[in-house]
């Protein structure tokens, strides 16, 4: 198992804020909209440096998405910012008609996704957003795993013409990917080479998968660990090549089983190379209040759950 060092502890939303600020300095067409959560989204620095390109929409997400579609029509590259729950479920029809169907170059940037939002509870802990967004034709769906990857993804999506959903989170989390990396949409990151099992992971659970990989290595199981930061378009080649080698797969994500990364992997494998899969994800349930760590344990999204899933799936080979 390759050794992955922790460089720092930072929240992924701050990676978004840093990426947005850099975009402000390098791309005059980038504008930012926020629905009364500027501090939470870490958009303050952009707002301070580029007040004429920052739009405070108030607590009115539907209007924010519609205006973003209008700004994109007028040639701007709008980045909208609010919590993942209010970025997707609350405004699904606005995104569907005014952004996705209309093919607008809008970047929907969503923080506080998943149970690691913590104490605010299930009203705010959306676990369905990846599914909602990936079902929309033409929508790119990205869920980076740490601060550096989130920053790089934020910068990269400005150069991509079309609607993008960028999902990140609230808690401080290990930083372990390279600073100033180049982010390639749709290109998986091969973290560790192994032949025993494929682990496809996204978002905060990438770190958990790496920790699981270390435990498995001690048990003599070398896992092929692949970070699928772009859930759509899926890096089909990377997934199929890995499973052709390992013959089984575990998926890990902070999302419902229905509609998430695991669901995409299962579809791909069922159509091309049916092999056993186990999914580490939330099983048709809402979250609740608690600390991020407590919630990851209670909802079965921890390192141990990935290890157990590997044992189960290898037994099914």
């Amino acid at each position: 198992m390759v050794k992955i060092e922790i460089l720092d502890q930072k929240d992924t939303r701050s990676g978004f804020g840093a990426g947005l600020l850099e975009l402000g300095r390098t791309n005059p067409n980038v504008v930012a909209l926020c629905a009364d959560l500027t501090g939470s989204l870490k958009m303050d620095a952009f707002k301070k440096e580029f007040p004429e390109r920052f739009i405070q929409t108030g607590i009115a997400e539907a209007n924010m998405i519609g205006m973003a579609a209008g700004l994109a029509t007028g040639g701007k590259i709008p980045f909208t910012g609010t919590f993942a729950n209010f970025s997707t479920g609350r405004v699904y029809d606005q995104i569907r008609q005014s952004v996705a169907y209309s093919g607008k170059n809008v970047k929907i940037c969503a923080s506080h996704a998943g149970v690691t939002l913590g104490e605010d509870g299930a009203t705010h802990q959306i676990l369905e957003d990846i599914g909602l967004m990936k079902m929309l034709p033409g929508m790119v769906v990205i869920n980076p795993c740490d601060y550096n990857q989130t920053k790089a993804a934020t910068i990269a999506i400005a150069d991509y013409e079309g609607p993008v959903y960028l999902r990140f989170g609230r808690p401080k989390w290990p930083v372990f990917t390279a600073p100033d990396q180049k982010f390639e949409i749709g290109k998986a990151w091969h973290i560790n080479n192994g032949n025993a099992v494929s682990i496809f992971c996204t978002g905060h659970l990438v770190w958990k998968a790496i920790k699981a990989g270390e435990i498995l290595a001690e048990m003599g199981i070398e896992a092929d660990i692949i970070n699928i930061h772009t859930i759509k378009p899926l890096d089909k080649e990377a997934v199929l090549a890995s499973v052709a080698k390992t013959g089984c797969a575990v998926t890990a994500e902070e999302h419902q089983m229905n509609g998430g990364l695991g669901d995409s992997i299962c579809q791909l494998l069922a159509l091309n190379n049916p092999k056993p899969v186990e999914m580490v994800a939330v099983n048709d349930s809402f979250g609740e209040s608690g600390t991020p760590d407590e919630l990851l344990v209670k909802y079965g999204l921890d390192t141990v759950n990935i290890v157990e899933a590997v044992k189960r799936v290898m037994a099914r080979k």
Binding site: G66, G70, A72, G74, P78, Q94, Q97
Partner: peptide, 22 residues
């Protein structure tokens, strides 16, 4: 812009108007 699902056009028009102001 696509329209049909009602109530969205004024937001889009406002966004275009903002882009013109910028």
């Amino acid at each position: 812009i696509a329209s049909g699902s009602l109530g969205q056009g004024l937001s889009v028009a406002t966004g275009i108007a903002l882009s013109k102001q910028m």
